[in-house]
Write a protein that binds this DNA or RNA. Structure first.
Lengths: 343, 343
DNA sequence: CTGAAAGCGCTTACAG
DNA sequence: CTGAAAGCGCTTACAG
């Protein structure tokens, strides 16, 4: 590997000047700058980022973290329930690397856990972290909130001196779903909000209840089916409900992946959608419009979510100030899985 | 941040000894080791990984790369076609970080491209790279193959002094799909192999043709529909085929995501599956069993794929030798989207 | 505008 | 078994 030393020699200057030329310091004459640039080109020099980071006492690397509750599920790789976040990760990766930062997933401790998470990050001198924190109870959330490490949370309301968050307006989303269903004449609506120990599950459920309340209705507790976020859980919850009773005319699933399980169960029972039962989801995954029937859903804008999270983080890193949090509106997307309530 | 200097002072030894104790050198007495460990604990010391990497002239970070052909599509984040790889990335992340390596997505050049990719990696002193290389033509593949940077390719047969690969046996997979369909009595089978400019697309198509040939049949060129990998492309290809002719009794889609588009088109035409048309996919995504009807498919073992790729890479990094490539068998998974050919 | 020197926080022959 | 010293490849006050 060629070093700045060699560039300096070839250009007939000191390493200090090479460094200045490279970092756009004003204090270097146009003539020597040219000479240095030529030397760099002819040698194919690329600065050693590791050495730069050490010398500068800072880095341009951002850590990414996904905090979920269930270690076991993480191991299985069959994380159907996280398809939405997979898309977010993808968008975050693009935003971060396009901004000239490296993205980083830190190594785990020997036991497979993340050990002393904060110290791991600090020892690697990361500049900041984007954390998708589904599970509220993860101790790493508190650690990050209390730390000086710039952090942006997605889907969790972590806030601190150096921490802010970005999330969807799930409350409003829940209300919209109910208002839409009510307007179609549905009155007996089953709600499968996902895991209500997670913020988005709790908010979506509450939003649904508020939507019902505004119409003077109260959600029937027996029609609220709490489960985990997986397609499979929703499938089983639907089967169970179907065995108990069939008086509901609509199901609001906590996510599109859950809705896919609901649809599957309904198909197996030969129930026509939406003639007999309407189904609505949350998220608007890119596969949702290809489901059978194409799924009506409440859309989360994952592009805005991802990009604004990254932008806020970079602001924190580069400007030093902590931006306000952002709550992103959701949007009703009507497709073919919902229709008027049967008479 | 506490440094080894402070630990040394507290323990009454030199920094060199602290370093030795930390790195498990045999040459340090049990007694001083204890003293150092105590000092570390009481100070909460964590070594600066950046400084370690610089001093050691090596690192424990592995870069991840996804080489796809279509820059435009990458920007859209609507990468339905890459759901399979999203799962692979997830499994790779787990395997890498559990092995005590950091995972790394390098920053892009200012124009949003990856610029001089190899130099970027080298300037960050990564130890090796896992590359999912869908597009054969990406110049970065050649660059990596020719370099000394340990590399494992997934889904592309890159091989070199310091490069090997892991992939599914798509050829055999294609044959299996055809043999199964033939055995069900199908003779007029439409093949939508995905993008045949990509290795897996070409292999799957060839495998299908071989399967047909073994039964003394030749694939009807008009029933081979080449398109891109997306759900949408497959949807449109199916619609187009349906408008032209309806004499086929089965469709082999190049991936499960494509199959989802095929199913959607068939549903819109009111065609019963599998009574009128059978559908088979490739991959076995975790959502495939929830499709309507549950999808018959040829499974790729992404866990084996991911884990063996990471293991090979770590072998290369730590042992210095380049392991042989691995071709993983595929497996037929029969569900409800296939049935006997109509009389 | 430019260079010499110190420093970033480790590691690793080299001596002893 | 342990320490002093040099080195990894940069950056950045400090002088001039």
């Amino acid at each position: 590997m060629v070093t700045s030393e060699q560039v300096a020699k070839l250009a007939g200057v000191s390493r200090a000047t090479v460094s200045r030329a490279l970092n756009g310091s004003a204090n270097v004459s146009e003539e020597t700058r040219q000479r240095i640039l030529e030397a760099i080109a002819s040698l194919g020099y690329e600065p050693n980022v590791v050495a730069q980071n050490l010398a500068r006492q800072r880095s341009r690397v951002i850590a990414f973290a996904l905090f979920t509750d269930d270690q076991r599920k993480l191991m299985e790789f069959e994380q159907t329930q996280h398809y939405f976040y997979l898309g977010v990760i993808n968008a975050v990766e693009h935003a971060i690397t396009s901004a000239g930062y490296d993205l980083f997933f830190p190594a785990r401790a020997e036991d497979g856990s993340y050990g002393n998470y904060l110290r791991t990050l600090q020892s690697r001198r990361v500049a900041g972290v984007i954390a998708i924190s589904i599970a509220q109870s993860d101790p790493r959330i508190q650690a990050l909130v209390n730390s000086n490490l710039p952090t942006v949370f997605i889907d969790n309301m972590g806030q601190g001196k150096r921490a802010t968050y970005v999330k969807s307006d799930n409350l409003h989303g829940g209300r919209m779903a109910m208002e839409y269903l009510l307007q179609l004449g549905h009155r007996r609506i089953a709600i499968m909000p996902g895991n209500t120990a997670d913020l988005s599950g709790a908010e979506r459920l509450l939003g649904c209840q508020q939507g019902l309340a505004k119409a003077g209705l109260v959600a029937d507790p027996d029609l609220i089916c709490v489960s985990d976020w997986t397609t499979e859980d929703a499938y089983h919850a639907t089967i169970k409900l179907l065995k108990q009773r069939r008086d509901f005319t609509a199901i609001a699933a906590g996510s599109d992946m859950m809705a896919m399980g609901v649809l599957r169960a309904l198909h197996e029972y030969g129930i026509r959608i939406p003639e007999e039962v309407s189904v609505i989801g949350f998220d608007d995954l890119d596969i949702s419009r290809f489901m059978e029937p194409p799924l009506t859903t409440v859309r989360q804008d994952r592009l805005v979510m991802s990009q604004s999270a990254v932008q806020k983080l970079i602001t924190m890193i580069e400007e030093g100030e902590t931006p306000a949090s952002l709550t992103i509106p959701m949007q009703l997307v009507v497709r073919a899985s919902t229709g008027p309530a049967p008479a």
